[in-house]
Nucleic acid binder design. Sequence first.
DNA 1: CCCCGGCCTCAAGAACGCGTAAAGGCCACC
DNA 2: GGTGGCCTTTACGCGTTCTTGAGGCCGGGG
Lengths: 225, 225
Amino acid sequence: MTSVLVVDDEPQIVRALRINLSARGYDVMTAYDGKSALAVAVEGKPDVVVLDLGLPDLDGVDVIAGLRGWSTIPIIVLSARTDSPAKVEALDAGADDYVTKPFGMDELLARLRAAVRRASARDAGDPVVETASFVVDLAAKKVRRDGREVHLTPTEWGLVEILARNPGRLVSQKQLLQEVWGPMHVNESQYLRVYFAQLRRKLEDDPAHPRHLVTEPGMGYRFEL
Amino acid sequence: MTSVLVVDDEPQIVRALRINLSARGYDVMTAYDGKSALAVAVEGKPDVVVLDLGLPDLDGVDVIAGLRGWSTIPIIVLSARTDSPAKVEALDAGADDYVTKPFGMDELLARLRAAVRRASARDAGDPVVETASFVVDLAAKKVRRDGREVHLTPTEWGLVEILARNPGRLVSQKQLLQEVWGPMHVNESQYLRVYFAQLRRKLEDDPAHPRHLVTEPGMGYRFEL
DNA sequence: CCCCGGCCTCAAGAACGCGTAAAGGCCACC
DNA sequence: GGTGGCCTTTACGCGTTCTTGAGGCCGGGG
């Protein structure tokens, strides 16, 4: 499901967007000021951000910069200001689109679809992730090692898939637990130890000294190519 | 050099765009109808297309479809139609942005920069914060020094992350302690001394005379690029 | 000159997180 | 009703990380 972070200090706008977006199958997160927007974005990794510029705490451009510091999530700016300099400033700061209030919901949704389409076209590269020891085929949901197919259980595949979609990046324990076991089990970090041991036995050349399924103690796991 | 294909049947618009774009260092191609636009696009492989919808021969949506059939070149639509359905149709057909005439040249140029930036960011790595001595990758949660990866503990990373998100800005001791250790430990400034010493040993060329992890006595710490 | 607050360094024990093995429970399939 | 695969749970040894205290350095103010 596509997740959208809506940032606006006007509750009625947030409510209207939440209703419309939810009705169309989007997963909606919300924030009412800049600081919490950045916090929620880091935490929830939304697929796209709808950002109002007139926030109470931070300047809109600072929020854009704060997001662009670590991510390329599409940002659609909402603003009551129609003047050109405001648009130019926001776009050059890293925003993807600029919509002036009052806006038509249809138009916003279309621009949102366009932004998501672009972003997913970017990520939908080669669906095969390859390491020195094994190959992960994300489309076929298969893992091969020395040409031979390795059988993974559903849980094992869930972990491998998340990691392979973020090669080189650290994925937090919480995110892994949440996406594989669900929100109720975000503290069962022991599960991860058990399953990573299994995966290493199946995939690593030397399971005791893993080169690709790396633990970052206290933080999470990383898929090194 | 970035190349732009301008498609419009009104000569004065094409001329205005050609002048403005050329002056800013863009390489400009032009076409006055849909068929030649598609031909020029195939021939010249522009980096971005500015497309007027009211063309004499083809419907604008068909031109978009014709381009999208073989490429993902960003398309910025120009149109006199301000109604929502027209925008939605164009965007859903595969356009990247929609600007209504009359348009401000500054705004169009900003949207064009945004489109080009996105397209070229497609094959770039994560955004990073870089100093003369080391590189911080906030998305991957990695720090590299001389190309070699430096291992940070969770607490060390917590400090680096906050500072790297506020480059050049003074971050108070209280804020660092609060965000890394929690509200109960805002007075344990000794923690900061111990950890900054460790970080300097790991990251600074001359730990005794730090250039990037700077102490502001009595105030806090600053991340100098 | 000496004192004092704030900072840096060092070191050691405590606390924590990780890897591993193994056992029990659940469920689907035979 | 048995069997095998998969998931969950417990226990323990080990290495790393965090915390804490002590001592030294430096600069400003008395």
